[in-house]
């Protein structure tokens, strides 16, 4: 799925963008299928705004965003649900897990929304890879933020997707856990021939990025 941004400026950044230039905002940018994109920017420059806008959670911007040549506001609520089930997957900065559900239930819920894609066995295998098997029967509200980050990553991987968007996904993980997560994410993206958009504060070499953009 091809994503095109044309002169996109979020309302909240309008004034700030009058004084500085950006690789993403107020310019034309095309993200091609299967590309690994790194968005690097300090706090407050709109990383989360960008991912939320691409994921259609925020609609407060000027300019045009096209997904496979269809403008985002033209996509109906039902189509958007289908896209979120089959084409777009996301790891939010604030993770957005259901605290009262078990870790396994959080993942299972996502799996059941896109049925017939990922088996329970695969979830168990991926949980093993990420080192969270022992957390599966624990309420996510009682897990540490680092543990929750890994649960959220796993949740994002149990659905079919063409783009995986991640907002500071490894902020609370140690290097060893980052390496495990990166390996799993990379293999899943490759397997699904999907693109990856990671927004983060610092430069990194976790993946071989096709492009790196600065906000």
């Amino acid at each position: 799925m091809r994503i095109e941004l044309k002169q996109v400026v979020p309302f909240v950044l309008k004034d700030r963008l009058l004084h500085k230039t950006s690789n993403v905002w107020n310019t034309n940018l095309t993200l091609l299928p299967g590309e690994y994109i790194k968005i690097q920017a300090p706090s407050g420059t709109g990383k989360t705004t960008l991912l939320n806008t691409l994921y259609s959670i925020r609609k407060d911007y000027t300019g045009t965003i096209l997904m496979d040549e269809k403008s985002l506001p033209e996509i109906s609520v039902d189509e958007l649900s289908k896209m979120r089930q089959n084409k777009l997957s996301v790891v939010f900065q604030n993770l957005r897990l259901f605290p009262n559900l078990l870790a396994f239930e959080n993942i299972e819920l996502k799996r059941l929304l896109s049925p017939n894609y990922c088996s329970k066995e695969k979830i168990e295998w991926m949980a093993e890879e990420l080192g969270i098997t022992q957390l599966l029967q624990q309420k996510t509200g009682t897990c540490s933020f680092g543990e929750q980050q890994r649960i959220a990553i796993l949740r994002a991987l149990v659905q079919p997707f063409k783009w995986l968007m991640m907002d500071e996904p490894f902020s609370h993980l140690d290097d060893s856990n980052i390496a495990k997560a990166v390996a799993l994410i990379d293999s899943e993206c490759k397997a699904q021939k999907a693109g990856l958009i990671i927004a983060d504060l610092e430069a990194d070499n976790h993946f071989i990025y096709t492009h790196q953009y600065f906000l």
């Binding site: 994921y55 289908k82 979120r84 259901f98 929304l113």
Partner: peptide, 15 residues
């Protein structure tokens, strides 16, 4: 909050 998050995760309002 739960309903909003469910929609964000891809549950359709119809479901």
């Amino acid at each position: 909050d739960e309903i909003q998050l469910l929609v964000v995760l891809g549950a359709s309002p119809k479901q």
